[in-house]
Design a protein around this nucleic acid. Structure first.
Length: 261
DNA sequence: ATGGCTTGAGTGTCAAGA
């Protein structure tokens, strides 16, 4: 019987390119669940065999070039749901599944490009649809975790240069209000349940030495229902893979849940 | 700096990301 359950999220920015990093990371960090975003793969190209050889089942909702989400798990996933019910969307941004009594929702939330753009409007509509769906999903599944690339820095603490980013995409008031809307459903930001080092981020721009200068944003999150927040013992961002050759621009976020008494 | 990298598409040079 495991001492605890570890769940994680990582935007890999192409699973084709990053599969070696994912396999190495899982070998060093044998989490129970790993949510991936930006697989950028059609289902037929998904590396099921390599992941199975590493001890992981996988469910995936993908497409060529853009988007694509997957849930890797030690135990097989059940009740798999792709997309937000009732929200027509060609972009593959959500997959949900039940793993060992946990309802896991893996999301790649829209970027939004620029405040006021059509993509920004889509982002806000998408966030409203997600929130509405999760309200019913939480009533049905009290042990629920929402993990993924939210493309929202919820607070100025999560931004390397809050003045430069003020009201910019990823930091605008409407985006932050949408994040608070998710929290108000009863979902807790696992990272903020614990003391954290200042200037901890999950994404750094590839350009201008962003990582080396720690010019980052915390936009990848693990949100936990009240039942799971009560069991959460730790949450951390693992910067190690960001230091490798040809890294993803995002780092994994890991939350540790104690087995209920 | 409508810049600065990286990826995928496709083989020249964009779109999109954050």
């Amino acid at each position: 019987m495991p001492i605890d359950t570890r769940i994680a999220t990582w935007n890999v920015n192409s699973l084709k390119v990053r599969l070696p990093h994912v396999l190495d990371w899982l070998s060093a960090n044998p989490v129970d669940v790993l949510c991936l975003q930006e697989t950028k793969l059609e289902e037929r190209a998904f590396p099921h065999a390599e992941l199975e050889a590493a001890g992981y089942h996988a469910v995936h909702s993908g497409q060529k070039t853009y988007n694509g989400v997957a849930i890797l798990s030690r135990e097989p996933a059940q009740d798999v749901q792709s997309g937000i019910p009732g929200f027509a969307d060609e972009q593959r941004r959500v997959i949900a599944a039940t793993v060992g009594g946990l309802r896991v929702v893996c999301a790649y939330m829209p970027n939004g490009q620029a405040v006021g753009s059509d993509k920004y409007e889509y982002k806000l509509r998408w966030l409203a649809a997600l929130t509405g769906w999760l309200r019913t999903e939480l009533a049905r599944c009290p042990r629920l975790a929402l993990l993924g690339d939210f493309n929202i820095a919820p607070d100025d603490r999560d931004v390397h240069d809050p003045a430069a980013w003020r009201d910019q995409i990823l930091c605008s008031e409407a985006e932050r209000a949408a994040f608070r809307g998710l929290v108000e459903l009863g979902l807790a930001d696992a990272f903020r349940l614990f003391p954290q080092p200042e200037k901890t981020y999950s994404w750094w721009d590839y350009r201008q030495l962003g990582f080396r200068l720690n010019r980052g944003l915390r936009i990848d999150h693990v949100l936990l229902s009240a039942a799971l927040a009560a069991e959460c013992r730790a949450c951390a961002i693992d910067k190690a893979p960001r230091k490798l050759e040809r890294p993803s621009d995002h780092a994994p976020v890991v939350a540790t849940l104690a087995v209920p008494a």
